[in-house]
Every structure is written in C-alpha cells, then in structure tokens.
C-alpha cells in the first residue's frame, strides 16, 4: 500500500532523513517511533506531498507522491502535528468543507461527514464552533477531517500528543478501529504507544530507519538489551545471588548452554541502561572460584534510540522525569503496558 524507498531529504546541506526505506501493507498500522527531531514529521510531509524529497521514491496506492501528487492527495488523510482547524467554523461545516476540497461527490458528502463524526464520537458537538472545543475534541475533529473522504491511507503525526490519559486511550481505540479498512502510519515518541496500537514499528533515529519489526519482537530485543554472556565452569549455585548484588545488573539467567560440557554453564546477564560493570562481573566470577572461559558483550543497537524515547506515559507532560528514573522505566514500561492508568 505504502512503499518508501531510499528516501532522503536535505535542508541545505543538513540531512533531515537519509535512505529511509519501509513499506506498509494494506490494513496495517505502522508506528513510526523515534525521539523528537528524528525525521518523523519530515518523512510524513514527504508522503503527503507537502514537501518534496531530495532523492528516493515514495508510492502510495501505486502512485508516486511527487509525480502523481494530486492522485496521492485524494487517497490520503493527513493529521499534522497541530490539527489544521478553522476556529470560526462549526465542526460539521468544517468537515463539509474538507469533504468538498478532498473531492467527495456532492451526494455522498452528508453521509461521509455523518460517518466521520460518528466514528470520532463528535456527533454531539456538530454545531459547536471549533475554537470552543477542548483539546481532546479538537484532536478528534482533526482525525475526522483525515478520514472524512474515506482515504485508503491515513497519516497521523503524533496523534496523542498533549492529550490527557483518558483522551489518549480514546484516540488510540479510535485509531485501532480504523485499521483494516485503512492503512495507517502514525508517528510517536512514546514507546508504549506503539505496542498498544501498532501492528508494526519502524524505529527512526537521526534521520535513519534503524529497525522495522513487530512491537513484540522489538520489545523482546529491548528486554534482551545490553548485557554479557559468560561461560563458566564449576558450581554456580551461589553465583546468581552474588551477581545480583552488583550495581547495574538487571537479570541473571544461568543455564546449561547447548553443546557445553556438563561442568560448564552459560550465564546471561542483562544490564541497566548506561551501566557496565564488566570488571566487577569478571571479579565476582573469579572470586567465586569458578573458571571463566568466555565473556562476551551483547549489544543491542537500538539501545541508544530507546534511551531517548519517552518510555512512560506520565513523562509526556513532563518536566519532573529525572534521567535516573527514566532509565529505570526503560525496562519497566514494556512489561506493564497498562501502566498508563496510573
């Protein structure tokens, strides 16, 4: 449905995105995950035809976003980071206007507007001036204008930013309900958001897509995190407890590795982000009277990206999130996606 190949965009000589490549199948929700300034908005603006790419191609429903811009524009719904709303119009009047400029046939307009309002749950506000709406309702009107012409592809730039937790849940449910009929790309810098709404995730950092996968697999990769793999010989009964006492150790897993002699075991350690107690680990193993045959660093390339991501819902409004608590939450959040209720 959406194919992006080797897309690059330079502002002057500064690259905003470089060689961005990904594709989205029909009916999928792709989460575009990355820290602020990673190039999410730039990529989306290129997809919608708002900005031209410096090089590379992007196709939506088979049409090139640059060559066949008008054909693409008819087939996409787009919610920019700030919802594009006219405060002096009523919700219904505005949606009629959007339906008209998006080329919805005159006979279908009322039906489409009605449907969009029902889906976004704004029917009771239909005659209200948009400038009198609360932030949450504005966001829903923003989504309604993106779906009013029933486009095959919907592009949402940070659809939940600035909403309160209850509104966030509503908007996410709304987006999920749109999948299937529509292909959706949404961008976010909130890690748990993708696991809750998206069927696939593309992680973008400093203008490059660094990983594309399902949320589950990415979380697993993240949970594996950065750590060490050790091969030790001897009685490991007391080792786990000792290792746990070291600073920066998150999990310790001791098992009989495949193809290892019976006397040897394999130890997998995962570390707290930003901690690297390699020296202490080795000292502890040796100090326990065990033989250390192998000690290997296991590095996950995504770690840097995840450190910059907002990993907890409450940190969004947030000045209070200290770096240390943020780091601790990196591992906590994926395990408890329901934590947003707090």
């Amino acid at each position: 449905m959406i194919e992006v190949e080797q897309l690059s965009k330079l502002y002057g000589s500064t690259p905003a995105i470089q060689d961005v490549t990904f594709s989205v199948e029909a009916g999928e929700i792709l989460g575009f995950l990355g820290p602020n300034g990673a190039g999410k908005t730039t990529t989306m603006r290129i997809l919608t035809g708002y900005l031209p790419a410096t090089s590379g191609t992007a196709r939506i429903a088979g049409f090139d976003v640059h060559e066949d811009s008008m054909a693409v524009r008819k087939r996409i719904g787009y919610l920019p980071e700030t919802p594009p709303l006219y405060g002096d119009m009523t919700v219904e009047g505005f949606l009629h206007f959007v339906a008209r400029i998006k080329g919805v046939a005159a006979g279908d307009r009322s039906k489409r507007v009605e449907l969009a309002m029902r889906r976004c749950n704004i029917l009771e506000k239909r005659q209200v001036l948009i400038r009198k709406l609360s932030k949450g309702f504005r966001q829903r009107v923003g989504i309604a204008q993106a779906i009013v012409h029933d486009p095959p592809a919907i592009i949402l730039d940070e659809p939940t930013v600035g909403l309160d937790p209850r509104q966030i849940i509503e908007v996410r449910n709304l987006i999920k309900s749109l999948a299937g009929d529509h292909t959706i790309i949404l961008s976010t810098h909130i890690l748990p958001e993708v696991s809750m709404t998206c069927s696939r995730v593309a992680i973008i950092n400093r203008g490059r897509v660094v990983a594309t996968n399902t949320p589950e697999q990415l979380m697993a990769q993240l949970a594996g995190g950065s750590g060490y793999e050790l091969e030790v010989e001897g009685d490991t009964a007391a080792l786990a407890a000792r290792l746990h006492r070291l600073p920066g150790i998150r999990t310790v897993e001791i098992g009989s590795g495949e193809g290892l002699p019976k006397s040897r075991s394999q130890v997998r350690l995962t570390l707290e982000p930003g901690m690297d107690p390699g020296r202490e680990i080795a000292a502890t193993v040796v100090g326990s009277g065990l033989g250390l045959y192998e000690m290997r660093r296991v590095r996950v390339s995504l770690e840097d990206v995840f450190l910059e991501l907002t990993t907890e819902e409450k940190a969004m409004d947030g000045s209070t999130a200290a770096p240390s608590s943020d780091a601790n939450n990196t591992d906590a959040a994926p395990d408890s996606p329901g934590g947003e209720a707090a």
Binding site: Y50, R73, P84, G87
Partner: peptide, 13 residues
C-alpha cells in the same frame, strides 16, 4: 499561523 495551510497544501487543490 494556524497550520491550515498544511491541510490545503495536502488536499487535491
């Protein structure tokens, strides 16, 4: 200022 130019510019107009 309102950001609605982005709506017009991404509509088939």
């Amino acid at each position: 200022k309102r950001g609605t130019l982005e709506l017009l510019a991404t509509s088939p107009l």
